[in-house]
Amino acid sequence: MEVIFNALLTGIITLALNVIFFTWIKTKWEENLETYKIAYSGIFKEKIEIHRELLKKIYNFKFKLQQYGIMGNEDMAMDLFKESNDFINYYLVNQPFIKPSILNMIEKLNKEYQECFEIFHAYSVYKTPGVDPKLLSEAAHKALEVSNRLRSADFKAIENEIIQEMRADLKYSDS
């Protein structure tokens, strides 16, 4: 009887200690999981917000650049200059959240924007009275080419890449 009692007591103690141990492990695991879940969701939300803001800045800058090409004046040039600096600062500060391939595309896009701005600016300068009509005609032709380039697939590629990255993060697909 004593052997059965000792075996039963040992079994009960082992079971109780296992329950306490597994409860402790489960509690610790859930606390850690919750901490990481909160941290990850914050980073995830920040990344989505950065991509959204990048798209907004790209669309706004492209729109203002096209407007400047059509009816550029000195105020618009200053606004574009400020917008360009804001865009550069934004993507440089948020580099850790931007995929390297997208970052490369953004840097190329920024160079394109600056080239477009320079051509539009030259065109707006040549529109002043007294400028040789041949120079004005050449500047107008270049400005038209740049305006068409702004609507080209090259400029859409970065937008599509950012959208695809956001969809991948959200685990959203078209299928």
Rank of each mutant, 00 (worst) to 15 (best):
D79K: 01
P100D: 10
E107D: 13
N94T: 12
E74G: 11
Y90E: 02
F81M: 10
N85L: 06
K99W: 10
M71L: 09
C116R: 03
S84Q: 08
D75H: 08
E112Q: 11
P96W: 04
L80C: 06
L103G: 12
N73H: 07
S84C: 05
E74W: 05
N94E: 09
K108D: 11
E83L: 15
E74D: 07
V93R: 13
D75N: 01
E112G: 14
Y113S: 03
K111W: 02
F81Y: 12
E107F: 13
L80F: 07
I88V: 08
P100S: 14
E115Q: 12
I106C: 08
L80S: 02
E107R: 15
M78T: 01
S101K: 13
E115V: 11
M71H: 13
K108P: 06
P100Y: 11
G72A: 03
N104G: 15
L109K: 12
E83A: 12
G72L: 03
Y68H: 07
M78W: 05
L109H: 08
F97Q: 09
G69D: 08
F81V: 04
L103W: 07
I88W: 04
Q95W: 09
F87C: 04
L103A: 15
I88K: 09
Q95R: 15
N110C: 09
F81W: 11
G72Y: 00
Q95S: 14
G69Y: 00
I70T: 06
N110S: 12
C116P: 04
D86P: 00
N94A: 10
I98P: 02
I70D: 04
N110L: 05
K99N: 15
I98N: 09
P96T: 04
I70F: 11
E74S: 14
Y90F: 10
L109T: 11
N104S: 14
E83C: 11
N89W: 03
N104D: 12
L103D: 12
E74K: 09
N104F: 12
M71I: 00
F97A: 15
S101T: 15
K99H: 14
L80M: 03
I106A: 10
M105P: 09
I98G: 04
G69Q: 01
D79F: 01
K82G: 05
E115A: 14
Y91L: 02
M71W: 09
M105E: 09
F87N: 01
L92Y: 12
I102Q: 05
K108C: 13
I70V: 07
M78A: 10
Y91A: 01
I119H: 02
Y91D: 00
